[in-house]
């Protein structure tokens, strides 16, 4: 397990304005067996400042759970900032949305989201979604290891290319 290799638990950055959702996600993660720590950003601006701060001073979160419907700066804008940055773009972004029009979903993937899930309306559905996230992203996949100092410099040397 990655967390073991890194000698620290996976860090999930949850970008979510709804305190209820934060509570639900946290209550799920707390009960699950995964060694996961969670940071929360309550709007888009906060998310970006957290990420920029971590980009400078490390460590980066391992996974971003991003709600699309955020006050001030929306989830789409956060996604853009992350995916246009040469260093931040390696972080898998899991988009959570309650609206699931095909246009919106398409747009999210176009902008580089790593996966998109619909927030289920009831508890059972929610648990199923969280369970799949846990199984796939926390256990199944290989996540990029955290940044070293040299890489951080490199990131500056190679500015973003994504438009």
């Amino acid at each position: 397990m990655q967390t073991v290799e890194n000698a620290r638990p996976l860090e999930v950055l949850l970008v979510e304005d709804n305190i209820g959702d934060v509570d639900l996600v946290w209550s799920y993660l707390r009960k699950s067996n995964a060694a996961v720590s969670m940071s929360v950003a309550r709007d888009g601006h906060q998310a970006i400042s957290v990420l920029r701060n971590r980009r400078e001073h490390g460590p980066l979160p391992d996974i971003v759970l991003l709600d699309l419907n955020l006050p001030k700066l929306g989830g789409i804008d956060v996604l853009r900032v992350v995916k246009e940055d040469s260093l931040l773009r390696r972080i898998p972004v899991i988009v959570l949305t309650s609206s699931s029009t095909s246009e919106e979903i398409g747009r999210v993937y176009e902008m580089g989201a790593n996966c998109c899930l619909t927030k289920s309306i009831d508890l059972t559905g929610f648990r199923q979604v969280m369970q799949s996230i846990e199984q796939f992203w926390f256990h199944a996949v290989c996540l990029p290891t955290n940044l070293h100092e040299s890489e951080r410099d490199q990131g500056v040397a190679f500015p973003t290319s994504a438009g």
């Binding site: 709804n18 209820g20 959702d21 639900l24 209550s27 419907n69 309650s98 609206s99 927030k119 289920s120 309306i121 009831d122 508890l123 059972t124 929610f126």
Partner: peptide
């Protein structure tokens, strides 16, 4: 209907948690 879903999700989820 889209915006109604947000609060409804809260109601449904937490009544679910309450029941559990």
């Amino acid at each position: 209907s889209h915006d109604l879903k947000e609060p409804l999700r809260m109601v449904a989820s937490f009544t679910g948690l309450l029941a559990e």
